[in-house]
Amino acid sequence: MSSIEEIKVLVETGKSKKVAAAVQEALNDGEKAQDILDAMIASMGVVGDKFSSAEIFVPEMLIAAKSMSKGVEVLKPIMAGENSNFLGTCIMGTVAGDLHDIGKNLVVMMLESAGFDMVDLGVDVPAEKFVEAIKENDNVVLVACSGLLTTTMPALKEAVQTIKTAYPEMKVIVGGAPVTQEYANEIGADGYAPDAGSSASKAKELIGA
């Protein structure tokens, strides 16, 4: 097995304690940092698909994301200044009135693993704060809004519409237990992901990556 293939397996199986050493070894063997990063992103795509099809569950997805971040830590100093293929910045938050962060955190990990530079606004985020974050950050290509409660669905609508009013071209993706594709369409969101596993592929599709 090539060193890159080995890294892919380590990420997919969530061996976070071994990934950093394997990445360093691959670099020592002459592999390019960008190729290693691409391999890890591809692995996380596989992990997302397995999660969506209930082949794996939240713990396995989390440890895979953690493993990838260990590998990225090794690559970061090497890739600083390189024209890497990061997809752009994504602003994410749970909407106003909702303190639930589990789904949001899972999506942050999956989007980060897919190559987005994530800005996590946390929970209970007022609509205007999403707009401020777009202004304050560079290269924002996507906003992701999460809502777990049926009672906070109006806040989700307000967030999407406030963002769209300020930035009509900005892509907005929504998700959360009570949210459906129909509701996403109704409130003017560009995309909807039913689970964290599929959020990365949907996000990439929205920005044309």
Partner: peptide, 10 residues
């Protein structure tokens, strides 16, 4: 949640 879920498998 994340810490608890990861602890189950790690």
């Amino acid at each position: 949640f994340e810490g608890a879920a990861m602890a189950l498998v790690e």
